[in-house]
Simulated assay, not measured.
Amino acid sequence: MNHARQIGDRISDKSSRPDERIVSEWMGPEVFQHWVELRSWIEASYPGLFAPDWIYGGKKRGWSLRYKKTKAFCTLLPAYRLLSVLVVLGRAEREKFEARRYSWTPQLVKLYDETRAYPDGKWLTVPILSEDDMHEVTELMSMKRPTLASG
């Protein structure tokens, strides 16, 4: 039985890895533009460092695109009409976040404060709803791993 799609529903068809066309159709043009910009920023800022890897997290979590070298860098979470980015902040990154606490937007600080801390860090899932959100996520990523190129 097919249910009506809701904003935030994940791509959950396990039979085939999503391609750019599927991601674009699922997200819609405005959100897909953030997807393209973010992927381009990662490639320009960390040239050749990451080989993005599609991972399937089950029916509920669906497909996500993970960027990882030895440690996880970030995971892009394509959803119906929504893009979120998962960034895990370990102890060092949390200290850096706290040192800059008042330079982040109130929405990000609230998300940070409400996110449970696990032994390996805080798993922040940040929705990208605007250019400001995009900028803040790239700042988080740069804080986690300094960029290799100006981007």
Rank of each mutant, 00 (worst) to 15 (best):
85 V>P: 04
149 A>S: 15
31 V>D: 01
93 E>D: 05
3 H>E: 14
60 K>L: 10
81 R>F: 04
111 L>A: 06
75 T>N: 00
54 W>K: 03
89 L>A: 07
56 Y>V: 00
23 V>K: 08
150 S>T: 09
118 Y>S: 09
50 F>A: 05
49 L>F: 04
38 L>Y: 01
138 T>Q: 14
144 K>H: 11
108 L>I: 00
73 F>D: 11
12 S>Y: 07
133 D>A: 07
128 I>S: 06
84 S>G: 10
1 M>V: 10
151 G>Y: 11
76 L>A: 09
148 L>G: 14
110 K>I: 00
122 K>A: 10
68 K>N: 10
73 F>K: 08
135 H>F: 12
105 T>Y: 03
64 S>L: 09
75 T>D: 04
142 S>I: 02
4 A>I: 12
36 V>A: 07
28 G>R: 01
59 K>A: 13
112 Y>G: 10
30 E>L: 02
135 H>P: 00
38 L>H: 02
149 A>R: 15
103 S>M: 12
81 R>V: 02
121 G>T: 05
23 V>M: 08
71 K>N: 15
136 E>R: 08
13 D>E: 10
16 S>M: 09
104 W>Y: 15
6 Q>T: 13
150 S>W: 05
100 R>E: 15
144 K>Y: 06
39 R>G: 08
122 K>S: 11
147 T>M: 11
113 D>S: 12
100 R>T: 08
146 P>F: 12
41 W>F: 10
61 R>Y: 13
128 I>P: 07
71 K>V: 15
128 I>A: 08
35 W>L: 05
22 I>T: 14
147 T>Y: 09
49 L>S: 02
20 E>T: 09
100 R>S: 14
149 A>F: 13
55 I>D: 00
47 P>K: 00
53 D>N: 09
145 R>W: 00
105 T>F: 03
134 M>R: 15
23 V>P: 04
15 S>I: 04
109 V>F: 10
118 Y>G: 00
133 D>L: 08
110 K>Q: 13
25 E>L: 15
57 G>A: 07
145 R>T: 07
20 E>P: 01
105 T>N: 05
85 V>E: 07
137 V>P: 03
15 S>K: 09
120 D>G: 00
100 R>A: 15
73 F>V: 04
12 S>H: 13
27 M>T: 04
19 D>H: 13
115 T>K: 07
124 L>V: 05
45 S>Q: 06
37 E>Q: 13
141 M>T: 01
101 R>C: 11
75 T>W: 01
67 Y>W: 06
16 S>H: 07
10 R>Y: 10
76 L>R: 02
12 S>T: 12
140 L>K: 10
114 E>F: 05
68 K>P: 01
20 E>C: 01
42 I>Q: 03
103 S>N: 12
